[in-house]
Design a protein around this nucleic acid. Structure first.
Length: 353
DNA sequence: CCCGGAATAT
DNA sequence: ATATTCCGGG
């Protein structure tokens, strides 16, 4: 039944803190919360983000153009990788793109019309979903209290308690992380189980019970880096019903935490990075590398653990060796003798449109 | 290529 | 629910 892909193991390590994880910036709570406890599968947009985050796939998929805009340079390859990840040997771009299209309504993605293989993330969604508290944090740091949908909405009125990052830190101390011996102090198992139910409680059905994210970034005293991520929440298209209060002209921190190079315009040669920085520069550190927009890939925040591991086998990052489906059970699919050649792509250079 | 309906699977 | 598979139509 199960298709124990090698990647599955990679994603479900024994006791990975999930604090940052160079390659995988998504703690498991970001995957699929409830539904099926044991069968939380990676979601396509997570996967896409993963690929985008890695330089080794820049030839296959990469940020390009506007914020959150990316282009699939090699659709077949992306589809192949996705197929491997999901143990669907017959995956192709046509099918993958269908799945992508389903994201339109969910507002996770939309299409950049005119540009082939080009889509765009609605990061506002992703951010709020995965890190709804960031706004609170922002508020605590000085901005006017804004938001907190769901249960919080009613409570935080005029005299809302001073939410500070520290408070958050205490509140959402690592849940499963401190599992050995100590369980979550503040939150009872009941609360612990609710998590995120709907992908987007804000404009989805909304009726779903919203909850806070268990653990944010772990034991980081400074969990909220001042990342100038002020992508325009209003996008080009008209947003459905997003109250401005939810999406202030503020800048959002990097949602993926350790996500390396952001989808800054600089990636695609966008000169607009400068003005943006200027706008948000104040909150940032005094000194700033001129090439910030490029943000090569500042993966490692400060944790020393994994770093050693990485350094040890620096050359061939075995992490995410997606090109191997040896772990896939052939029974799950009508798996043909698919040899799964990693680089059987002779050279699809042209593909001129 | 891109779009979405429909049926199906997990 | 999310994704896969299939597919008619633009």
């Amino acid at each position: 039944m199960d298709c124990s892909c090698v990647s599955d193991l990679l994603f479900a390590p024994p006791a990975l803190p999930a604090l940052w994880t160079p390659g995988f910036a998504f703690p498991d709570w970001a995957y699929k919360p409830e539904s099926s406890p044991g069968s939380r599968q990676i979601q396509l947009w997570h996967f896409i983000l993963e690929l985008l985050q890695k330089e080794e796939y820049q030839g296959v998929i990469a940020w390009q153009g506007d914020y959150g805009e990316f282009v699939i340079k090699d659709p077949d390859e992306v589809a192949r990788l996705w197929g491997i990840r999901k143990c669907k040997p017959h995956m192709n771009y046509d099918k993958l793109s269908r799945a992508l299209r389903y994201y339109y309504n969910k507002r996770i993605l939309h299409k950049t019309k005119g540009k082939r293989f080009t889509y765009k993330f609605n990061f506002s969604k992703v951010v709020l979903v995965n890190y709804p508290l960031l706004d609170v944090a922002a508020a605590a740091t000085g901005s006017p209290l804004l938001l907190t949908p769901g249960p919080f909405a009613g409570a935080p009125g005029p005299d809302a308690p001073p939410l500070t990052p520290e408070t958050l830190q205490n509140l959402f101390s690592t849940p499963r992380l401190g599992e050995p011996g100590g369980r979550t102090p503040l939150f009872t198992p009941e609360t612990d189980k609710l998590r995120l139910d709907s992908p987007f409680p804000f404009l989805g059905s909304g009726a779903t019970s919203y909850s806070k994210p268990p653990s944010l970034l772990g034991p980081y005293s400074r969990a909220f880096p001042e990342y100038p991520w002020n992508f325009n929440p209003y996008l080009t298209g008209p947003f459905p019903k997003l109250p401005p209060s939810l999406y202030p002209p503020h800048f959002y921190p990097n949602p993926l935490g350790s996500l390396g190079h952001l989808p800054a315009a600089g990636a695609g040669g966008g000169p607009m990075a400068a003005p943006l920085l200027a706008a948000t520069g104040e909150g940032l550190g005094p000194e700033r590398p001129s090439g910030l927009a490029m943000a090569p890939r500042l993966a490692l925040p400060g944790a020393g653990g994994p770093e050693a591991t990485l350094a040890g086998k620096e050359d061939s990052d075995s992490e995410l060796e997606i090109t191997d489906v040896s772990g896939c059970s052939s029974d799950s699919e009508g798996d043909e003798g698919l040899p799964v050649s990693p680089k059987t792509k002779s050279g699809k250079g042209g593909s001129g449109s």
